[in-house]
Nucleic acid binder design. Structure first.
Lengths: 222, 222
DNA sequence: GCAAAAGTGTTCCAGATACACCCATGT
DNA sequence: ACATGGGTGTATCTGGAACACTTTTGC
């Protein structure tokens, strides 16, 4: 079976930067390439777009195939199309990034099995193709969005404490934040509500648990 | 001649939202489609990406073909890929937007010849395909970037007055700005310098002419 | 001299920043 | 009782917003 066109067509893929927070670190999911080119190198998960699915559907399909996760935050990042970025044929990739909440259990890659693994942003291996460039852009986008949106909430489980949320900010920004100012800012948004419950976590005062008012919305703030 | 692949490939195009400021209005360049589908409807300029050119090169080529203009600001906007957005075959389009300075003389479309024309953003015709959606996103991006970058400078000729620049802001934002606050903000950026020259424009005090320090850079501010 | 747009400073307000102590719990 | 992290309020600073008059020119 073969497909013919009157003029040349590029291949189109989606690649996904899958972020989560684990072990007090911002981590990204990478896959070890089994085939050339870049055999044995680590790469972003991704694959060809089917002709009957939208770009976002393609990205969500890849995401589900690699992690078993669905229903998480996914945003188009940028489209990369240097003619020589893949030595086999012309491949244009529409890059997305996804944020996975910290409590999403049994992500396939959590097992670190067969060539799928989480990497901390400071322990990245060499990446195949132009994937390092894609990953860097995704990180920049994420850092930028922390400032003017509620994107960080997408890393949180349904119920979370403010110190937990603050830690997410600190890990992504790479700097410490003032506890009182952080609380003031978050609470003044009016986008979280107390659940009335608390989380006890060791030999200290328990923290109040909150929920997002609109868990699946990322709001632009300020 | 025909091109064959082992699995189906989509077509990839670039479409360009070309903005300029003319006659005290933000205008966009549209082309009347000569062929089906949407024959006779207005559409964004664009075309297929050649296999040996990058996406941005393809967009610049289309831009030059339609307007004769090169060397202007061009930024990738978003990639649109709904499976049914073109009835002929699967077409994925990487949308760009371009900003053309107000003094760029003899833009081909300025003549309003044969099916190429500038439209004010409040006099838009029905657009082919999903081009209305693309245009709306471009306008939103432009408005957003006014606030946190020097993107408006890209509409200005080499030398310009502050009242002229202010008018560009006002036209894009659709609201009046305070003259003193505007001046203070722009001058405090330190990104424009006086030329020492003035522009006389009628029966009133002449305005000082300024130049951008980095005419081809769009700086993120604030 | 009059009409028209250019140029110029100060006050006020709101939101961000800096900062230190008490509280609830487990051991 | 003490160690640990959770929770709280105020003073200060800074950048944005509001606001009115003088200057230079063409006619």
């Amino acid at each position: 079976m073969s497909y013919s066109y009157d003029y040349p067509h590029p291949a189109v893929t989606t690649d996904i930067v899958i972020f989560t927070i684990r072990q007090d670190e911002l981590k990204v999911l990478l896959i070890k390439r089994a085939l050339p080119p870049h055999q044995g190198a680590w790469a972003l998960p991704g694959g060809f777009v089917n002709l009957d699915e939208s770009l976002e559907e393609g990205a969500r399909r890849e995401l589900a195939e690699e992690t078993g996760v669905s229903g998480v935050y996914l945003e188009q990042l940028y489209t990369f199309g240097r003619p020589d970025r893949d030595p086999r044929e012309r491949v244009i990739t529409v890059a997305y990034y996804a944020l996975i909440p910290t409590d999403t259990i049994e992500i396939r890659a959590a097992t670190d099995a067969e060539g799928v693994s989480w990497f901390g942003m400071n322990e990245l291996p060499e990446l195949a193709f132009d994937h390092r460039e894609i990953l860097d852009m995704a990180q920049r986008r994420l850092v930028d969005k922390l400032d003017y949106s509620t994107i960080a909430f997408q890393f949180m489980p349904k119920e979370f404490t403010l110190p937990e949320l603050q830690q997410v900010y600190e890990l992504i920004l790479g700097e410490a934040l003032d506890k009182r100012n952080f609380r003031k800012r978050i609470l003044s948004l009016g986008l979280v509500m107390e659940t009335g419950k608390e989380r006890k976590a060791g030999a200290h005062r328990p923290a109040k648990l909150y929920r997002s008012i609109h868990p699946d919305r990322v709001e632009v703030i300020k």
